[in-house]
Nucleic acid binder design. Sequence first.
RNA 1: GACCCGAUAGCUCAAUCGGCAGAGCAACUGACUUUUAAUCAGUGGGUUGUGGGUUCGAGUCCCACUCGGGUCACCA
Length: 505
Amino acid sequence: MPESQPQREPKMSELDEQIANRHKKLAALKDAGVEPYPHRFDHDLEPSGVQQRFAEQSAEELEQAALSLRVPGRVSALRSHGKTSFADLWDGRHKLQLLIRTGELDAASQQVFENLDLGDYLGATGRLMRTRTGELTLAVTHLVLLAKALRPMPEKWHGLADVEIRYRQRYLDLATNPESREVFEARSALVRGMRRFLDDHGFLEVETPMMQLIPGGAAAKPFRTHHNALDLELFLRIAPELYLKRLLVGGMHRVYEINRNFRNEGISTQHNPEFTMMELYWAYADYQDVMKLVEEMISHLAVTVRGSAQLSFRGETIDLTPPWPRLSIREGIARYAELGAAALDDPQALLAELRRRGAELPAIRDYGHLLMALFEAVVEPHLTQPTFVIDHPVEISPLAKQRKDDPRFTERFELYIGGMEMANAFSELNDPALQAQRFEEQMAQRAGGDEEAHSYDRDYVLALEHAMPPAGGMGVGIDRLTMLFCDRASIRDVILFPLMRPVAG
RNA sequence: GACCCGAUAGCUCAAUCGGCAGAGCAACUGACUUUUAAUCAGUGGGUUGUGGGUUCGAGUCCCACUCGGGUCACCA
């Protein structure tokens, strides 16, 4: 009597039981001489390719053609009707239905079929046909196992919804949620389109150091690392800027780089510690030229990647048709804070206005920092449609040229779209003495409590002393641009493996 | 870093006022020769994130912790 057996096995959890079942099938296959993880599979098309190529073929045309195809894919559904079964092969984008008549399979194929589980990779050989409901179907003559899945896949209908698992085990997200895969395909198309656009405009793609002695080119806290052989403290770059501008000195007059930057700061829906930036430098141009270039580039990419210059983002329609409005820092504040012209020039009035609004006060309270703090508090929330915010204060723009008509401000722009800062650009400062002076001012700010003030890079000043041509330069956040293009609220939805805290234990 | 919200079967989700922890898919057994979220009959599967507490009784209330999401701060 089974219930009287004292050594009865303890009950297995559901997951353990499913895994055990799959291991049993794996063992059965091995016993039958089936290789469960073969090295390769000669195939004609994946399911998407079959669907694409034969979409227009009628049942009669397929019957006449009597095409034999070899198609690989992951088994995503299994419908058994006794002697006839249907399986779906999935390639992450489309499925191809298999028709399997168990009586008509050879012995090896029969073994594979009897030990099949959802999630297994399969290679099917058969004749392409349409069922009486019109479904494009491969009538299988031979089956090979390409890889055995030892754990169950997420449920087929709802897919994987748990955001934590989607980020930690992105492969499950990609394997089950087509809309997630589409985001990363769009991201790839975006980067490809950007490279093509820049190449077509005579820009040369280059690579500059990711490990730097002095982390320059931006205001941010760096990650530290160490080179053993040289016993050297190094920093992961926060920006490639100063190296790319050294290339301008070297006569590479149109360069760009698309790669990762690393900033040791908080994580949010718009921030990942490593993120992708496109930076370009363009000799003999200034920030006005760069504005025209970037509005042309982004609107062009929207049309080629998304099919329209009008994008839906967070429930609003964003129109990327150029030209985009230019809004100076002071104009913006005057418009949205309704401060008089006199107050705009008066640090005390700016401080009073910040206090009145209960806004965060900057660590450094000079004119430029106060003006920017007020801008961020009152203007930024309004910047849904593409807007070039221009003419930033010199105190926060140590790498930019000053305006000739008002040296308190620089020839700089930040591009805002959908409330996100998408790009940052300026007419590049190339006067070595002035640059040295700006670095000095940054060091003073650092001493004054701003941990993220720029570092003094003497080697960069040395390069400028050899003459850097006048140039416009720009950085564009690729992740955020992808968020805009794909209407995603979080940067984690456009980065394949966002940084996550490890699970305890 | 602060605050708010969340975590239930492999997956997607229920569970009324604190009163026997459930469904669908998936798994397992069986039926079925054109289904496609196949269908039908049956079976198994839970330390309700972790650790405490209150209570006759906790998925539910309280405290702490872990992880995640969101907002703010910082920043691109």
